[in-house]
Design a protein around this nucleic acid. Structure first.
Lengths: 193, 193
DNA sequence: CATATAAATGAATGGTATTAGTTTATATTT
DNA sequence: AAATATAAACTAATACCATTCATTTATATG
């Protein structure tokens, strides 16, 4: 049932992620991947569905890990503190695994239920935390989108040298975090407008 | 001084941008570009410095256009109104020219003075508008970074199908915009308009 | 009209992903 | 233990891609 079990999916994805974290997703080619695994590139096709399949696997792994990261940050906390820790955990994740994070941005050609499920899982976590504030359903949607926008935007810009001075970046992040939390509270009390 | 002037830089970049806006930056290959220009791909090297050179030209064009867009949005306005219009103009730009915007994210291998200058120009515009709020120098840096993070994050996520429901996206954007402006005012030492 | 110039080309190289068919090591069965 | 089935890994080949080099060729200039 399993002749020549030299490779497996986990090894391949793990190696691919290591390359991505070091040199970016674009540097993950089947050629260098096979080389690092001491194998010929066609052999990889026994375990993954080509380069798109590999990218998908990397995205799945990244989203799963990101979900765990966010969950751990939020567990046992509530309200502002939960939000703040989620923000910090998210940024930390991107800083620690830039290539893996980049991989989570993979957009499949056709709808992918498993990918969508993981995205939804993270979304549900955020929604649960935001439910502490007394927002309408619509405001809840806006707030989650705002949170994702800020987090994705900030970490993406930082990753691509978007911020000139490396020094105050952490302070900027905390400042932005404060603005978001303040805004959340302001919107929660004024249940209209 | 100019034999066989069939091609020029402008034509090439313009065609490349059209391809990028329709199919994404990754779809801009020298092969299809040459094909559309009815020329062999090596001919392009007389006008651009390979694919990296083309990407750089696209980034320059995009940043210039983005700068103009932001400037037009802010001219004759001040305070909240200027901020709001810049937000809307930025999002509109990304929606109208997704590929060109993607091209502006190009990061050169080595420091590129011209690219940096254009980035700085846009930054200066934002800083000038934010100066209406009475922020410290540090807060000003944080505020510009926050603005860029939100704008880049939101438009990127929207472009990659990040938001499930297509309907309320504009409302979400306005909501986030409001949070930002409110936060700005709260942080300012004195109130602006 | 001759010549210099630079644009456009064909040919070739090396990289990439991918497919097809073949070999081969292992697990299972006889 | 030997035979066989199975799937992993391979070789070979194809079709793209960017890029370089040497050559041709059209045009502007002397």
């Amino acid at each position: 049932m399993s002749p020549r079990i030299g490779l497996n999916l986990q090894m391949i994805v793990q190696t691919a992620i290591a390359i991505a974290d070091e040199h970016g997703v674009q540097a993950v080619t089947l050629a260098v991947l096979a080389q690092q695994l001491k194998v010929r590139s066609p052999s990889l096709y026994n375990h993954i569905d080509g380069l798109p399949g590999l990218r998908r696997e990397m995205a799945l792994a990244g989203l799963h890990q990101l979900k765990e990261t966010v969950m751990i940050a939020a567990v046992g906390r509530a309200g502002d503190m939960a939000i703040r820790e989620i923000f910090r955990a998210y940024l930390n994740f991107v800083r620690k695994h830039p290539g893996l994070y980049e991989a989570t941005l993979y957009v499949p050609e056709q709808p992918d239920e498993q990918l969508e499920q993981l995205h939804q899982n993270i979304l549900d976590l955020v929604i649960q935390v935001l439910s502490a504030y007394h927002l309408t359903d619509e405001q809840l949607i806006h707030a989650t989108r705002g949170l994702r926008s800020v987090l994705h935007g900030f970490s993406s810009l930082e990753r691509s040298n978007g911020f000139a001075l490396k020094e105050d970046v952490d302070e900027s992040f905390e400042w932005i975090l404060n603005v978001y939390v303040q805004g959340l509270k302001a919107m929660g009390t004024t249940t209209g407008a």
